[in-house]
Design a protein around this nucleic acid. Structure first.
Lengths: 145, 145
DNA sequence: ACGTATCACTTGACTAGTCAAGTTAAAATC
DNA sequence: GATTTTAACTTGACTAGTCAAGTGATACGT
């Protein structure tokens, strides 16, 4: 029989959770005719605009190619615009994008909040936040080295 | 300024961690000419074989279509075989698949374990495991309803 | 002034996944 | 016994991502 370490058990739980909650998230935002990934990107742009594609890619830890494709989709839907200046493309929300973001934001926040509240106390959530922040920062540092 | 809830902050950290650690994992198993996702599936099959495609899909919370494609790739590489009996296809590892699994298993376990050990104490890991297990089980229940 | 390096982005070929519609054959119903 | 239902799987069209090679324009060293 194969032994598993505590670390590998955490790994499995976290990846399952992420995958499953992504499915639920997508289900939740489907009524706005948008995906959870697209909402995440719009949210980042809304917070930091104007920003370049590479800055955005950095913030969400996605490759340059990945961000290029994602922004093409968002541009096709009319949610964002790209202004070329020299070799950089500056990204910002269109009015349609801003409206969509405002529309979805609160709903998605409520959805995430109640899912957590339904199974963890506030104190547990604080503890969980502290712990995942620690591992996430560690992983990020490791990735950039 | 937009307010974020504790829950949404946890969400961001967890999804970033999952994505970043998947990148690191893939980097780690690249030398075995396999992907992290493929290893996960081989590991499940090794533990529960023989099992049907739908049972496997269930275990890793993937759609029927997704598992079909993944198994086609693994079959193409010669790691698994599918035995048709009536309408079910029973999945099991080939010898090549078993060897590959044995080869990668310990390395991947070590990788995951040291990444955790580098940033969390054993007590913190236990706490983290308890908390993510709670949310994951809750999400799973929610998904199946 | 010319070739070269670099930067920001795109694109091709791929993995990994979704959903919905399409097979196929057994099982259940009438 | 013929017809319909259901179960297990596949496939087409899509999103979302990777890496590596390609593009184009600026900057830089000799």
């Amino acid at each position: 029989m194969r032994k598993n370490t505590l670390a590998s058990l955490i790994w499995v739980r976290i990846t399952r959770f992420t995958h499953q909650s992504a499915l639920l998230s997508n289900e939740n935002v489907k009524k706005y005719d948008i995906t959870a990934a697209q909402f995440d990107v719009l949210n980042q742009i809304g917070t930091y605009q104007p920003l370049s594609q590479s800055e955005l890619a950095d913030k969400i830890t996605i490759s340059a190619g990945g961000i290029s494709r994602m922004l093409s989709r968002l541009e096709r839907e009319g949610y964002i615009e790209r202004t070329v200046e020299w070799k950089t493309k500056w990204i910002s929300l269109t009015e349609k994008g801003q409206i969509k973001l405002d529309e979805v934001f609160e709903d998605q926040l409520d959805f995430q909040t109640s899912l957590m509240d339904e199974c963890l106390t506030k104190a547990e959530q604080k503890k969980l936040y502290a712990l995942v922040t620690k591992v996430q920062k560690h992983t990020e540092k490791k990735l950039n080295s």
